[in-house]
């Protein structure tokens, strides 16, 4: 088992690398899109809604295949890693948007009015008053999304990225080390995902304790 551990470690790092890029970009997309939906910006609102529906109703694998195998046919050639990041961001952005949007709507309208009555404009109100409050309630959903997106990275082997599944499959197929391969696979994912999951529970409890009530 020791001989294969480095392979797994390297694969795990790749997964984390692509995963964290995708997650950060997804969060950025989510913040922007949730703002668009909250303020009902004309035109953009329709585009964002369409994007969210499209992205939430299609599997990541299909998106990746389209990016990796389909786009080269019209001259856009992206590396497998780029496809992974873009695909993950496309999928994750809509989930983050949903998480932030529902928290934004949970902030009472009169907070918004009180900030407006001090003379702040929409962007200032969003940035200093509404979004910080929404963030607290969004944490559980955001963490759930992070875990979800990290799990989704398991399909990267489909576009020939040397991630954990790829390594495991190799070991099973080439070396017939099924038992060890699967065991290490499970351990690798537990090591990656359990801490995030636990961190999420801790954060959620601490923020609730901090009590953001009036």
């Amino acid at each position: 088992m020791q001989t294969y551990a480095p392979l797994y470690a390297e694969a795990a790092l790749l997964t984390l690398r692509i995963g964290s890029c995708g997650i950060l970009l997804s969060a950025a997309v989510g913040i922007f899109c949730s703002g668009v939906l909250y303020y009902r910006v004309p035109v953009l609102k329709g585009i964002v809604s369409a994007y969210v529906e499209l992205s939430r109703n299609t599997p990541l694998l299909v998106q990746l295949f389209f990016l990796y195998f389909g786009l080269p046919k019209i001259g856009i050639r992206l590396s497998a890693e780029m496809c992974g990041v873009i695909g993950l961001t496309f999928l994750g952005g809509s989930y983050m948007t949903e998480a932030f949007r529902s928290s934004l709507e949970a902030v009472e309208k009169i907070q918004y009015e009180s900030a407006m009555s001090l003379g702040m404009n929409n962007v200032q109100v969003f940035r200093y008053v509404i979004f910080p409050q929404a963030l607290a309630t969004a944490v559980p959903s955001v963490v759930a999304n992070i875990v979800f997106l990290l799990k989704e990275t398991s399909v990267f082997s489909g576009i020939a990225l040397a991630d954990l599944m790829y390594v495991a499959k190799d070991l099973i197929g080439l070396y017939y080390q099924t038992g060890e391969a699967l065991l290490m696979l499970v351990i690798a994912y537990l090591v990656m995902l359990l801490p995030v999951s636990l961190l999420g529970s801790v954060l959620e409890r601490r923020l609730r304790y901090a009590g953001f009530g009036n």
Partner: peptide, 19 residues
């Protein structure tokens, strides 16, 4: 819930045969 579904598929499809 924490394991990616693909891992579960591997465990059952490849692992059950062996185990």
């Amino acid at each position: 819930r924490i394991m990616p579904q693909l891992v579960l598929l591997f465990i059952v499809f490849f692992g059950a045969t062996r185990a």
